[in-house]
Design a protein around this nucleic acid. Structure first.
Lengths: 170, 170
DNA sequence: CAGAGCATGTAAGAAGTTACATGATTGT
DNA sequence: ACAATCATGTAACTTCTTACATGCTCTG
C-alpha cells in the first residue's frame, strides 16, 4: 500500500505544480493569491475554490516543498508561502515531465466532437458557432503579459480548429 | 443543501456524458466496453478505471438514464446497458451544453507554457521537442472511423500550435 | 457606515484513484 | 495446462466541490 509521506518524491499533480509555479513566478504568495490566480483561468478545472487551495498549500508545506511565514502587518492574518529548495526542484521536475506534459488532458469540446455524428447537422453547426463565439468572448486572463501571450496563442489555434471543423462539416 | 436524487435534472459531468455517448453510438454496451472505450483515449482523464466506470453506470441507472438487462449467454455474468428515453434527452442536452463545451478544460501542456519563462531556453525547447515527438507517436484510437478523424484533426492542430510556439521561442 | 474585497479556514459529501478479489472463456 | 483477456465488482483512500463560518480593511 502506497502511503504519501513528506519525503516521497511522488510526481506532482497539475494543481500542485500550478501552485508551485505561481509562487515561483511571484516570489512569495498567500493561498488567497494562488486561489485568485487559478480563478482567472478560462478553465473550470482551475476553479480556485478555497476548499481545494488551502488544504493544497498545507499539503505542500507538509511535504517541505513550501515554507510559510507570518506576513501579517495588521490585525488580519496573512500567511506567505515561498518555495523551499526541494520545492524548486520538484517544480522544475514537474515542468520537464514530458509524459504528463504530452497528455491530451480533458477537453469538453473534443469530447463532444467524438459524438458529433449523433447530432443533426444544424445542431452540430450551431454548437460550433456558439462555442466559437464564447471562445472569442473569453477574457484575456491576468495582468501577466507572458500568460496573456500564451492564452492568445491558444485561443487563435482553437478558433482555427473550430473553423476547420466547420468547413469539414460543410 | 443540494441532494442528488433520481429525478433531479443536474447537468451531466463529462464522464457521465461520455458514457451515455458510447452507449448511444454502439446501441448497447456493458460497463466493461465503456471502460475499454475510455481507456483508448490518449488522455489520462479518460483512464477507464473499473472503480470509476462501474459505480458510474450504476448511478446512471439509478437516475433512470440507463436501463440494464442480463445479456449473459454462458456462465459468465454480462450486464448490458441501453439508453432510456430520459437518457437520450440527457445526452442530447449535455451535447448541446455550450457553457460546458466552451470550457478550456485541462491541458498539461498549456499549463506548463504559462510557466515556461521559468525554464531556460534549451530546457524549454527540449520540452516542446519531446512533446511534439510524443504527440506524433500517439496511437490513433479505436476502430471508430469518425473518432479517428476527430483525433487526427486535433493532433494536426496540436502540432501546428507546438510549431508556432517553437518559432516564437526563436 | 455599508458593502466589496481580502484573508483565513473547515465540514459534509461526491467522485475519482489504486489495489484487491473472483471467476469464466478463449487461444496457444 | 497456462496465460491473456473478458467481466464483474468492492474497499480504502485522496482530493476535489459546495457551502458555511469568521473577521479585517479599504473605498465611496
Amino acid at each position: 500500500m502506497h502511503v504519501k509521506n513528506e519525503s516521497s518524491p511522488y510526481p506532482l499533480t497539475e494543481l500542485e505544480g500550478g501552485a508551485l509555479g505561481v509562487i515561483q513566478r511571484v516570489g512569495a504568495a498567500t493561498a488567497y493569491q494562488v486561489k485568485e490566480w487559478f480563478s482567472c483561468s478560462p478553465s473550470g478545472y482551475w476553479s480556485g475554490s478555497a476548499g481545494a487551495v488551502y488544504p493544497l498549500m498545507q499539503r505542500l508545506e507538509d511535504r517541505s516543498l513550501l515554507a510559510s511565514r507570518n506576513a501579517s502587518e495588521t490585525k488580519r492574518p496573512k500567511r506567505e508561502f515561498r518555495l523551499t529548495p526541494s520545492g524548486e526542484l520538484a517544480f522544475s521536475t514537474w515542468m520537464r515531465d514530458v509524459n504528463q506534459a504530452s497528455d491530451a488532458g480533458y477537453d469538453p469540446l473534443r469530447t463532444r466532437l467524438a459524438f458529433l455524428v449523433s447530432l443533426d447537422k444544424p445542431a452540430a453547426r450551431s454548437l460550433l458557432d456558439e462555442v466559437e463565439l464564447k471562445t472569442r468572448a473569453m477574457a484575456s486572463p491576468l495582468d501577466d503579459d507572458y500568460v496573456r501571450i500564451i492564452h492568445e496563442s491558444w485561443r487563435t489555434m482553437r478558433l482555427a480548429w473550430i473553423a476547420e471543423l466547420k468547413q469539414h462539416l460543410g
